[in-house]
Design a binder for these strands. Structure first.
Lengths: 154, 154
DNA sequence: CTAATCCCTATCAGTTAGCTAGGGATTATC
DNA sequence: GATAATCCCTAGCTAACTGATAGGGATTAG
């Protein structure tokens, strides 16, 4: 049930972009510095995010990436699906990319209790990721930082 | 977020064992026939389930595997963790096998909002899998089969 | 013009997934 | 006590995937 490093890194970078006043571009170099991700690897991730219209780019000096929409219009679920595929633990339980079970002894999908369970899991994951936007995450991060600053001053 | 085939197959086989009156042993051969899984591959899965005290075995003619406890004492969560590792999408959010984040630019764990989100996901998955026992699944399957039989008779 | 940046594709080493194979140990049955 | 069915254990193998690294072209602000 592990997230890949691509999904992990993409969410980190998008949170970083969401923390800035939108729209405001950051270069791959800057993003890599802030997150500790290998720049060339991050570049590929950004290209995929751009192809999916999650971010948009400006080339040349002073170029970089910025969110293609407001962070309140971007959910973590969308990003994770983009980088890691469907949320469901089994292809037969995916709503976005359904693939039937290959085992010939599997019961019909409607009557398969395991598929029913994987659907429950899928819905549970989606319940968290599809309702969490990057605006929400950025808000939480600001709150956490304010909290930390407070702790430090006392 | 995909389940491996080991996790998939293990749950299928354990559901099969749970459908029988416990305790009642089935051989790998029988289990493979009923599920359509490759017998030699299934053998390895059964060995792991045995090492974890989920099933117990009898060797020799008329031997086989049976549940080591009643199906009401075995959750899907335990089995999935056994075959596929922690439920959490990120090692830093695992409660059963916590591993800190390797990125040096990651904030402290307490303040990391992404970790907070992965914890939410972990809890959502665990909420489904740790409360579902194989007794429950077997019950559902019996109900589904009764339903199907009814449909057929009409 | 130049340096910074995005864009694109190829490559590559290591790991993992999903099996397959073979042979030893045990045991019910005849 | 021979036989056949079964579990037990370890090794190996191929294809795909992961997580990068590399290099060079296109674009653009200054």
């Amino acid at each position: 049930m592990n997230l890949s490093s691509k999904g992990d890194y993409a969410t980190r970078v998008l949170l970083e972009l969401s923390m800035n006043q939108w729209p405001h571009a950051l270069s791959v170099h800057q993003l890599a510095d802030r997150t500790g991700i290998s720049p060339k690897y991050l570049e590929q991730i950004m290209l995929r995010l751009r192809a999916a219209d999650v971010v948009r780019s400006r080339r040349g000096v002073q170029g970089g990436y910025e969110l293609a929409r407001g962070p309140d219009q971007l959910t973590v679920g969308e990003v994770v699906r983009l980088m890691d595929g469907p949320l469901a633990p089994s292809p037969c339980a995916s709503r976005s990319a359904h693939v039937p079970c290959p085992l010939y002894r599997c019961p019909t999908e409607e009557s398969c209790v395991l598929r029913g369970l994987w659907l429950e899991v899928r819905d549970a994951i989606s319940g968290v990721l599809d309702r969490t936007t990057f605006a929400e995450l950025a808000e939480r991060q600001r709150a956490a930082r304010a909290q930390a600053r407070l702790m430090y001053c006392i």
